[in-house]
Amino acid sequence: MDPAEIEFLAEKQLISIIPKFNLNHTIHLISGDIGPFRSGIPVRVPIWLAINLKQRQKCNIVVPEWMNVETLEERKENEKQSEFFTKMPNEHYMEVSRMLFETAGDEIQKIDEIRTVLKDIWDLRMSKLKASINKFIKSDTGIAQLDHLTQLEINSVRPLLPDSLNIISSLEKDQDSDGEDNSQSQNRASSSFAQ
């Protein structure tokens, strides 16, 4: 999967904006109703819309609660202390933060610090992931549990991890799983020289 597609999924999340315009109607989107819009009054919309409105300077974005230095530092500590993966404040924390940095950077206080902490958290989790992948491959177990990993993190080890497991599993088998003994080269050989 492409990171852009995961970002696409992340954009469905709702976020608060403060519109700079008025619209008295409720907008009946296929994915749900939003509005009406009153200038200065916060309203919840999907991120894809928030970004678009912000880019057209029609709104301000309310930074999500979890995107502040203190909360994130705490999370980073938790992650360091824990042997496993901790639950992140948002299923798509990297995607959402990246999008907001890009379009609403002016509204985020201490943006550089936040960027740094998030990067630290990401790096921390990724190195945990890499270490456990190495261990997993060396073992013979056919299953691993990965609670609390976000979709982007999971995708970062695609296709390497699943493909390597496919290879090992295929090397371990004595024959194709439905009992076909003939390797395909046998198949080719027998037809070529059938007399």
Partner: peptide, 21 residues
Amino acid sequence: ELYNESRTAQVRLNQWMSVGI
């Protein structure tokens, strides 16, 4: 082949992270 595909994916991820798509 494993290396090539894995590397392509990593490059795309890095690009996305720094610049966005």
